[in-house]
């Protein structure tokens, strides 16, 4: 329930405290006030050099993707164990795919591959647990190589 309420936040207009960040330190103030102001300044996100989170998120690929299920993304193999490929595609979790039979030797560490996302997090509710149990893995289908590896 609360989550539905929360998700509305995405639609709400971006509120930035721009005016707050423009605090000019007075020369003649007490040490405590000085320190207090300094501290206040530090607590604020350093918006001078970086965008606020809201706009970062709004312009991110993750939001562009929309509903991730069934979308095709590129990933990079970062680890192989026998015939299991561990692929990182920029999400919180990696995914593990079996090595395809065709062109098997081309799937080495560092290869870029195409994936179709089935599920971003493998987690389900089990009896006797309040929370979902998660495998800390995403579920994807390996489609093939992005391009021939640069030799």
């Amino acid at each position: 329930m609360f989550l539905r309420h929360l998700s509305i936040k995405f639609l709400s207009p971006i509120s930035r405290r721009l005016s707050d960040s423009a605090v000019v330190l007075e020369a003649k103030t007490g040490t405590y006030a000085n320190a207090f102001k300094k501290f206040e300044d530090l607590n604020k996100p350093t918006s001078e050099e970086s965008e606020p989170f809201v706009s970062l998120l709004k312009n991110s690929k993750f939001i562009d993707l929309g509903d991730p299920e069934g979308k095709v993304v590129t990933g990079k193999i970062f680890h192989t164990v026998d015939d299991d490929l561990y692929i990182d595609f920029g999400w919180k979790f990696h995914c593990v795919c079996p090595r395809p039979i065709k062109n098997a030797s081309n799937y080495v560490r560092g290869t870029k591959v195409r994936l179709r996302i089935k599920e971003l997090e493998l987690s389900t509710k089990f009896l006797g647990f309040e929370k979902d149990l998660t495998l800390l893995e995403a579920d994807c289908q390996l489609l093939g190589l992005v391009q021939e590896r640069s030799k």
Binding site: L57, W91, E121, S123, K131, D132, T134
Partner: peptide, 8 residues
């Protein structure tokens, strides 16, 4: 910024 699924 990525968290887990809502369920957990």
């Amino acid at each position: 910024h990525y968290g887990h699924k809502e369920g957990s």
